[in-house]
C-alpha cells in the first residue's frame, strides 16, 4: 500500500495547479522511490514529467508499484479543501479504486478526509533520451514568466538564442517585433537572482509561447528555473523542489522557415 505524508499540502496543490491545464487524466506511478507522473498534452507538443521523491515526504511508504489513475480536475476540487499549511496524507491500497486524502491543520484541531474515485488509465509512456544540452540557463522563475508573458502579447512564437554574449528571447508579431537579452548575473547575497549560462555551442530554436506561458504556472514551486536547450531537440524547462523532487516540461520546437 501507499502512505505518503507531506508536511505542507501546498507542495501538491502547487504541482497540480501547474499541470492541470496541460494534462487532465494521468497516472501517479508510485514505488519506493516516490511518486512519478509522465503525461503529454492532447496535441503531443508538450510533456510533463513530475517526480516527487520519497525524501520530500515524511514518512513515505510504498512497497510495490501502484498506479493511481487520476482526473486532475477532480483532484483539484479535493485539494481546494486543503489549506497550504495543512499536513496532507495520501493513502491507497495495492490495486486501488480510490485515493484517500487527509488534511490536518497544523494545530490538529481539524481533520478533513476525502476519498477520490480513481480511473483506469492506459498511459503511453515515451522514452526520453539522456541529452547533453548545448546550453543550460538558470534564471529567476519570475523573470522567465515575465519574458514569456510580455512576448506572448506580441507573437505566438519566441526564438531563444543562446550565445557567448548572453541569451536572447526574440519575437516577431503582426504589430512589430521585440526582444529581451539576458546576461550573466552573479548576486552573491541573493543567489536566487543569479542568471547562469553554461554553453558548449551556440543554439537558436523557436517555440510556441502558449506552452511556455503554461509552464510558467509552476513558478510558485521554485524561485529559479533551468532551461536546457540544444538545436533541433525539445526544450527542457525544469523547476527543482526540495528533497530532489522536480517538475519538468518538455516542448517540441517549431522547425523550418
Amino acid at each position: 500500500m501507499l502512505e505518503a505524508r507531506l508536511e505542507q499540502a501546498q507542495l501538491l496543490k502547487k504541482v497540480v495547479d501547474a499541470i492541470k491545464d496541460l494534462v487532465q487524466d494521468c497516472n501517479f506511478d508510485c514505488n519506493d522511490s516516490g511518486i512519478a507522473l509522465q503525461a503529454m498534452d492532447n496535441s503531443h507538443v508538450a510533456l510533463v514529467s513530475m517526480m516527487l521523491k520519497a525524501e520530500s515526504f515524511n514518512p513515505f511508504r510504498c512497497d510495490r508499484n501502484i498506479a493511481i489513475g487520476l482526473n486532475l480536475v477532480s483532484l483539484t476540487k479535493v485539494l481546494r479543501a486543503a489549506q497550504n499549511e495543512d499536513i496532507l496524507t495520501l493513502k491507497a491500497e495495492d490495486a486501488p479504486d480510490s485515493l484517500n486524502l487527509t488534511f490536518e491543520s497544523s494545530d490538529k484541531d481539524r481533520i478533513s478526509e476525502y476519498d477520490l474515485k480513481l480511473m483506469d488509465i492506459d498511459q503511453e509512456h515515451l522514452g526520453i533520451p539522456d541529452t547533453d544540452y548545448s546550453a543550460t540557463i538558470s534564471m529567476p522563475s519570475a523573470e522567465f514568466k515575465r519574458i514569456c508573458t510580455d512576448l506572448m502579447a506580441m507573437s505566438e512564437s519566441v526564438t531563444i538564442e543562446a550565445g557567448k554574449d548572453g541569451i536572447k528571447f526574440a519575437c516577431n508579431g503582426d504589430i512589430g517585433n521585440g526582444s529581451i537579452t539576458l546576461r550573466t548575473v552573479q548576486d552573491v547575497e541573493n543567489k536566487e537572482n543569479n542568471i547562469e549560462i553554461a554553453l558548449t555551442e551556440p543554439v537558436s530554436l523557436t517555440f510556441s509561447l502558449k506552452y511556455l506561458v503554461n509552464f510558467c504556472k509552476a513558478q510558485n514551486l521554485s524561485k529559479t528555473v533551468k532551461l536546457h536547450i540544444s538545436n533541433e531537440v525539445p526544450l527542457l524547462v525544469e523547476y527543482a523542489m526540495e528533497g530532489g523532487s522536480y517538475l519538468r516540461f518538455y516542448l517540441a520546437p517549431k522547425i523550418g522557415d
Binding site: 503531443h44 510533456l47 503511453e124 509512456h125 522514452g127 517540441a252
Partner: peptide
C-alpha cells in the same frame, strides 16, 4: 513560416 513538431519525432517508445 515555421511549423510545430510533435514530441513523437524526438522521443521514442521505451
Amino acid at each position: 513560416k515555421s511549423s510545430q513538431t510533435t514530441l513523437g519525432k524526438f522521443f521514442g517508445k521505451p
